[in-house]
Write a protein that binds this DNA or RNA. Structure first.
Length: 512
RNA sequence: GGUCCCGUCGUCUAGGGGUUAGGACAGGAGAUUCUCAGUCUCUAAACAGCGGUUCGAUUCCGCUCGGGACUACCA
């Protein structure tokens, strides 16, 4: 036995030198899902790591669920993530069109080919009959599931009779009733299924003339010279079916690699009820593409279990299919938050300011400022917020007090934990002149801070009790960025006015 | 119901016939500190179970159990 680099199972017919061509083929029926985008990423990285081609194909053969918005979202999302496709809609390519609805005639032609070969047939069953059949099977717990092959052996005359009646047929695949079908999966190994357990004669061409996924995907993958199919594990059950189709056409199937699914914390397929699932949602909340890419590729894949930060560029080099995990993975929102925070902290102030402005704008906090003013003001506050952001939109809550008067605070708000309004009134009365004078004289923060701290023992309260009434007066909140920085960001005049207002509130309060 | 896939800390994972089973997030404790973050240190936490094979299994095999997917004129 010789040892050899075993890329064997990874290439069709063991051809190791061929160009890798993969595709991401979503259907534009909704916003791009985190799970879908992970499939796109895996395909993209796999292609890049082999210097191959990443093809985008739009599977819009279900015209009832199609939406323009979904298509825009697909392009917008990939663009935002920085995932460019080598061939596909917009950019074109040698095997187009890349939008399935524009390939209508192609599918009809190949379906006819199968009919001519006797490997597919017309079916005239009404959807009512099919519904009844399904219901019957369910009620009787029949082991026989699916279509009963009613039209499988219609004579020429019978077919013509139906056609004459104007009934629009569907085309069904003749799945062999005997034997078994095996396909190879890079991760899973060989997967075999008895032919009798394969969906009995699935529809290839719908009555509207459009193909179903099964037909379209096989034809397109072949015509587009796709070498590897990386798709979600939910497709495993139809793997043998697709192989039967390839065989029926006399084509060689590509190499399969079924990706583990992305689940919610309850172990079910990630869906809306678990939280945000569309990339657009994450983008709106202020997640960075770097964080999404990094985290999402880490569910179901890891390099060595140690390294956890990966740029897109690195992944294009280092991604490998054999390191994909077989087991489904739970999408951890908290961990995404952590990654996002890490990437936010890596930004320089100017870039981060540019990212933050749209969020501040969205809440009208920058009204009346020119673009230059906005940039300068926001750059100035970035140091205060940077460490406190999990998502970009957090900036609004953290920095709102700088741009908008929080209004007269409640007395309770002004009191540190365990301190009475009387104590806090005294504290603020004494602290205010110190801080005002200190700031105006340009004293060092540390010096002012020391003076304020010395107040605490004199008043018999905690240091926190000295700072809280100031903080809460100025920011309208018990949590804020560091006090002196906050005051400077706001401006002395406003800050002093708010402290005076705090004094009034405490002065007119007896208890809280 | 049938078919298929999966099974290491709560979560993402590394590892693999003999290891103190490693890392990260989340959790807990502490340090820093004007609050909140951030940062640093420490800590708790796993091989689903049962049978084999073997000198030795978490690792290989089988079964059980658990979880999931599919079972559309949707993809």
């Amino acid at each position: 036995m010789y040892t050899q680099v075993s890329l064997g199972g990874m290439f069709p017919s063991g051809r190791v030198n061929m160009e890798v061509r993969v595709r991401y083929a979503p259907s534009p029926t909704g916003l791009q899902h985190i799970g879908g985008i992970r499939t796109a990423l895996f395909n993209y990285f796999f292609a890049r790591s082999f210097g191959g081609k990443f093809v985008l194909r739009v599977e819009d053969t279900d015209r009832t669920r199609y939406s323009d918005e979904a298509l825009d979202d697909l392009y917008g999302t990939l663009d935002w993530l920085g995932i460019r496709w080598d061939e596909g809609p917009v950019v074109g390519g040698p095997y187009g069109p890349y939008i399935q609805s524009e390939r209508y005639e192609i599918y009809r032609k190949y379906a006819q080919q199968l009919i001519d070969k006797g490997m597919a047939y017309y079916c005239f069953c009404s959807s009512e009959r099919l519904d009844d059949l399904r219901r019957e099977q369910e009620d009787s717990h029949s082991s026989q599931q699916g279509y009963d092959r009613h039209c499988r052996n219609l004579s020429k005359e019978e077919i013509q009779a139906y056609l004459d009646k104007g009934i629009k047929p569907v085309v069904r695949l003749k799945v062999p009733e005997e034997g078994s079908t095996t396909f190879h999966d890079v991760l899973m190994g060989d997967i075999t299924r008895e032919n009798k357990d394969i969906s009995p004669d699935p529809i290839l061409l719908k009555s509207d003339g459009f193909p179903t996924y099964h037909l379209a995907n096989v034809i397109d993958d072949h015509l587009m010279h796709i070498t590897h199919i990386l798709r979600a594990q939910e497709w495993i059950p139809s793997g043998p079916l697709h192989v039967i189709l390839y065989n029926a056409f006399g084509w060689e199937p590509p190499v399969y690699c079924h990706l583990p699914m992305v689940m919610g914390n309850d172990g079910h397929k990630l869906s809306k009820r678990h939280g945000s699932t569309s990339v657009r949602d994450f983008r709106d909340k202020g997640y960075l593409p770097e964080a999404i890419i990094n985290y999402v590729t880490l569910v179901g894949w890891s390099l060595d279990g140690e390294k956890q930060f990966f740029s897109k560029y690195e992944l294009e080099k280092v991604f490998s299919i054999e390191k994909i995990n077989k087991a489904p993975g739970v999408f951890d929102y908290k961990k995404l938050d952590w990654f996002n925070g890490q990437y936010i902290r890596e930004k320089d102030d100017k870039e981060l300011a540019g990212l933050l402005i749209p969020y501040l704008d969205r809440e009208n906090l920058l009204d009346g400022m020119s673009e230059d003013e906005k940039l300068n003001r926001v750059i100035a506050i970035v140091p205060l917020v940077k460490d406190r952001l999990k998502v970009l939109s957090d900036v609004c809550d953290i920095a709102r007090f700088i741009f908008k008067d929080p209004g007269t605070p409640e007395a309770k708000m002004l009191c540190a934990k365990g301190h009475t309004p009387q104590q806090e009134l005294k504290a603020l009365e004494m602290a205010y002149p110190i801080i005002k004078a200190g700031l105006l004289e340009g004293k060092a923060d540390a010096a002012i801070e020391e003076e304020l701290c010395e107040l605490a023992p004199k008043l018999g309260i905690k240091v926190n009790g000295v700072f809280m009434p100031i903080r809460a007066s100025v920011t309208g909140s018990q949590v804020s960025p560091p006090l002196f920085d906050s005051i400077r960001a706001l401006g002395y005049d406003d800050a002093f006015k708010r402290m005076e207002r705090g004094l009034e509130v405490l002065g007119s309060t007896s208890a809280c």
